[in-house]
């Protein structure tokens, strides 16, 4: 993975596969404190203690099309390279939270990358059955939105109409903390 926004997309795809209907993505860039925090929380089917123990093993997966599960183990490696910590909290039928903390200024930390594209990929394809909540903080600047609120405001079941996509792409780019 070239950047953190791709890892985030990959972890969110895990949440989608776990049947989540609500997914929260939180990013905190505390530059002055040399800290970057990323958390992805879902209300999917969750995991038991036995599965959590094996979840960072690249040769463990709950999926059936292939016998490797690289998503979380690649993210864990990326976090380790930036002298960070990865925490996974999960309970069966309650959901999962993946939380990473890493050194913001570490020379080996991957760039955050294009979060706008990651959000648009999720909103444009999955906002009908999943509510996405996004909160991004960078040194006092904050940006947040909820697809549930946008859908309710527009009176739409899904947000993949060309006019809506155009609006959201423009607005997310404008509001994203830099």
């Amino acid at each position: 993975m070239q950047d953190l926004s791709l890892h985030i997309l990959d972890i969110v795809e895990n949440s989608i596969d776990a049947g989540a209907t609500k997914i929260e993505i939180m990013i905190n860039e505390a530059v002055a404190k040399n800290l970057l925090e990323i958390s992805i929380k879902d209300n999917g089917k969750g995991m038991g203690a036995k599965t959590i123990k094996k979840i960072l093993d690249p040769f463990y997966t709950t999926k059936t099309v292939r016998r490797v599960g690289l998503g979380l183990s690649l993210f864990a490696q990326t976090v380790r390279e930036a002298q960070g910590k990865l925490k996974i909290i999960s309970k069966p039928n309650k959901g999962t939270m993946v939380k990473a903390q890493m050194s913001y200024n570490h020379i080996d930390r991957k760039p955050l990358g294009n979060m706008c594209d990651t959000l648009m990929a999720l909103i444009g394809t999955r906002s009908e059955d999943i509510d996405f909540f996004y909160h991004h903080k960078k040194d006092g600047k904050e940006f947040s939105f909820s697809t549930k609120e946008i859908r309710r405001y527009l009176g739409l079941r899904q947000l993949n109409h060309p006019e809506v996509l155009k609006f959201l792409r423009k607005e997310i780019k404008r509001c994203m903390p830099r």
């Binding site: 947040s144 405001y153 509001c175």
Partner: peptide, 13 residues
């Protein structure tokens, strides 16, 4: 906090 422009959403509704 920056927010999406709800007024523009009104236009596209």
């Amino acid at each position: 906090m920056k927010k999406l422009k709800i007024g523009d959403l009104e236009k596209i509704r």
